[in-house]
Design a protein around this nucleic acid. Structure first.
Lengths: 226, 226, 226, 226
DNA sequence: CATGAATGAGTTTTCATTCAT
DNA sequence: GATGAATGAAAACTCATTCAT
C-alpha cells in the first residue's frame, strides 16, 4: 500500500495544511469579520481540529496577521506583475497597474474584505500591516508620477509639482482606486477595465493639467495657468 | 445657586441622558470597533447603569444604528451648511463642501470611524445606513458636476459627459475625498484646507479637461481631444 | 364638569384599580407563565405605572398569590352555586357541580392556567394555595359520596367503603375531572355538558358497583361481589 | 488499582458526560421548574462547566426537550415492560400497566415533575412532546378497552360503546391515573399497588357497567340498563 | 502528528424593585 | 396619590485557549 492512500488522506505536509488553514481563515475573516469569525468555524472549514490551528498559527491574532500579510503580498505582487510585463510609458504603466489591481480585488473579494475592511477596523496592530502595503502602492504611484513629470517637456518649470503635492496626489489616486474597487465589487456589471478607464480618464487628464502648472485656487473660480 | 445644584444630581431628563449615552457609544464604537465595544464600557462612560441604556436604546444593534444615523445626518448637515452659506459658482460650492467635509471629519474622528470603518464592516444592515448617506453625497456632487458642465461654454458638444460617466466620476470624487479624509486624520499636520486644496487641484482641472472632451485611452498614451 | 370627566379618567377608587391589576395579572400569568410574565407587562396591560402595582400589591409573589386566591375562590363559588341551586339527590348534585366546574374553567381559561398549570409548577408556596382549594373540592365530593353510600340501601354492610377508599375515590374523581377539563379546554368541540356526561357515566356506574360491594382484585379477573 | 483510578479522573467519554448532564437537568428542572432552573446550577450539579453543557446539548430548550423525551420514553417503556411480561386478560394487563406506571413515577419524582408539571406549563413546543407520549398511553388503554368489550359476551348489543366514548373514557382513565400518581407522590404512605387498586376498583367495575349498557343520564338519578 | 475533552472569562440582555419628585 | 428615572443581580450563551491521550 502506498503511503498516499486513497482514503481520508490524513498526514499532509505542514506547508499544505497551513495553506488550507489560511485559506479558510481569509474566507471566514472576510465574510464574518475579525471578531465574529470563530476559531471553531475556521478549523472546521479547513477540515482540521482546532488544536492543530493553534499548533501551527499560535493565536487568533497571529493567524489574522498572517492572513493580512499573505494577501497584502499577493495584491502587491499582482500589481507589480501587471506592470512589469510591459515596462514603458508611465501612463501605460499606471493603466496596467490599475487594471491588475481591479482585477485582483475582484477575483479575491474575501482578501479585499480582510485588507480593506477588517484589518483597518480592528486595532492599529493590524491597520499598520496594511498601511505598510499601502505605502508601497503609494510610493509605486509616486514613482510613476515623477517619471511622468520628468518626461513631460511641456512644463517650462518642471519643479512645480512639490514633493508634498506628489505624495498627496498619489494618496488621493490610491484612495480613489480603493474606493472604486469597493464600488466595483459591490456593483455587478462593472469590470476591472471599466473601473480602470474611469479612473484614468479622471486622473490622468487632471494630472496633465497639474503638470502644466494649472492650479485651482479658492480665490478665483477659473483655473489659472501661471 | 438654584435648586438644580451642580452636585451629584443623578436624575436627568431622558433627552439629556440619551444624548450622553450616544456620545459615549460613538466614542466607544469608534475606538474599539463595533464588536469589541461592550455595553458595559459604554454605560460606564456615559455614567449610567447598563439597564438604562437598554431601557432607552433597546439593544446594541439599535444603539449602533442610532449612532450611525445621528452622525450621518450631522456630517451631511455640516457639508450642506458649508455650501448653502454662499451658493454661487459650482466649483466654489464644491470647494466649500469639501472644506466642510474635511473639517467635520477632522473634528469628529470617532464619528468618522463609526461611519467609515465600523458601519461598513459589520453587516449590510449597518452598511446600508451609510450607503444612504453616501448616495446623498454622491448626488450632491453629481448635481454640481452637471451644473458645471452646463456652465462651461467651451465644450462644443455639451452632452459629452454621459450619465454613467458623471456618476462614476462623482463616486471616485467622493471616494477620493473619503480616502483623503482618512489620510488627513491619520497624518498630524494636514489641515482641512490643505486636503481640500489637494483634491480640488487634482479633480477640478481633470474635470475641466474631461468636460472639454479630453479622454485617455489605453491605445495611445497621449491625451486626445476628440 | 363632573369629577368623572370624559377624558383620561385618572383617579379611580383603589378597589377598582386593584381589580384591573389583578385581571391583567391573571391574563399575563395564565398566558406567559409565572416566571415569564413581567411586572412591566402586567402594569402596562392594567394601564397603570409599575410603582402603583407595587404600592397596592407589594411584590410579584404576593400578586401571584392574590391571583390564585381570587380565582380559587371564584371556582369554588361557581361549583357551589351550581349545586346549591337545587339540593337534592347526590348524583344530581355531583352532576350539577361537574357541569359548573367544566363551564367555569371553559369560560376562564387564563384562570384555569393560573390554578392548574402555573401555581402547581412554581414552588410549594403557591401549590399549597391550590391544594387548599382542591381539598375543599375533594371534601365536597367526599361528602356526596358518603351521602350516596348512606342513601343506598342495597348494600347490606354499609361500612364497606372505608374512609381511605372514599378519599382515594374522591381524589381520583377530582383528578379525572381536572384532566377532562384540561382536555376539553384544548379540544374545540367538547362542551361542558359533554365532559360532565362522560365523567358521570364513567364514574357513577362504577361507584354504584363499588357501593354494592363489588371489588376488582389482582388475583382473579372477574369482578366479585363479596 | 487499575489505571482508571477512582480518583479525580475528569476526562470522560461523551456518552457518560451527557448522561450525567441530563440526570442533573432532570433533577433541577423537576425541582426548580423550567424557568427557575439555571444552566449554572445544572452544570454544577453535573460536575462540569457550563460551556460543556452547551457544547453537548446546545441550548436550554434543547436540553429540556431531550430530558422530556428521555423520561417519556422511559415511562412508556416501564409501562409496556410491566404489561408484556404477562399478556393475557385485558383487566390484568391494565392492572399491570397501572402498577408499573405508579411504581415508575414514584421512583422518579423529578421525571414526573418534568413530564407532568414543567413540560405542560412552558410552551406548546414542550407540551406537544408530552402529548405524544400521552397519546401512546391513551391508545394503549383504548386498545385494552376495545379488547375487553369484545371479550365481554354479557353485552347483547356489543357495539354500544361508541368510538368517541371509548376515547373519552380512556382520556379520563389516564387523567385519573395521572392525578392519582400526583396524589400518591405527595402522600407518604400510598404505595403503587394501593393506587393501582383504587383506580381499578373505581374504573373497572364502572367499565363493566358501561359495557353492559348502563348509562347515567341527567334526567333520572337511577342508572338505567337500556 | 493530531484530537476529543474541557473551561475561565466575558458578552448581551432581562427583571424585580426602589427612589425623588 | 402617582410616576419617570434608575439600578443590582443574575441568566443564557460564546469564545479563545489548553490539556491528556
Amino acid at each position: 500500500m502506498g503511503s498516499a492512500g486513497a482514503g481520508k488522506s490524513r498526514r499532509m505536509p505542514r506547508e499544505v495544511r497551513e495553506r488550507q488553514m489560511m485559506d479558510a481563515a481569509v474566507a471566514t475573516f472576510g465574510q464574518r469579520g475579525y471578531r465574529a469569525a470563530s476559531m471553531d468555524e475556521i478549523a472546521e472549514l479547513a477540515g482540521v481540529s482546532k488544536p492543530l490551528v493553534y499548533l501551527y498559527l499560535n493565536s487568533k491574532e497571529e493567524l489574522f496577521t498572517a492572513c493580512i500579510r499573505r494577501e497584502a503580498d499577493a495584491l502587491l505582487a499582482a500589481v507589480r506583475a501587471g506592470v512589469v510585463e510591459r515596462g514603458i510609458a508611465p501612463d501605460q504603466q499606471l493603466w496596467a497597474g490599475l487594471t491588475a489591481f481591479f482585477a485582483h480585488t475582484a477575483e479575491h473579494p474575501d482578501a479585499w474584505s480582510v485588507l480593506y475592511r477588517q484589518a483597518r477596523t480592528h486595532g492599529e496592530r493590524f491597520a499598520d500591516e496594511v498601511a505598510g502595503m499601502r505605502e508601497e502602492l503609494v510610493s509605486f504611484v509616486t514613482g510613476l508620477l515623477r517619471e511622468a513629470a520628468r518626461a513631460t517637456p511641456t512644463s517650462a518649470e518642471p519643479a512645480d509639482l512639490g514633493d508634498r503635492d506628489v505624495v498627496g496626489v498619489a494618496q488621493a489616486l490610491v484612495g480613489a482606486a480603493e474606493a472604486l474597487a469597493g464600488w466595483a465589487n459591490e456593483t455587478p456589471d462593472v469590470t476591472a477595465r471599466e473601473a480602470a478607464s474611469t479612473l484614468m480618464n479622471f486622473a490622468w487628464t487632471g494630472l496633465g493639467g497639474l503638470m502644466d502648472g494649472e492650479r485651482w485656487s479658492a480665490g478665483n473660480s477659473a483655473v489659472v495657468r501661471r
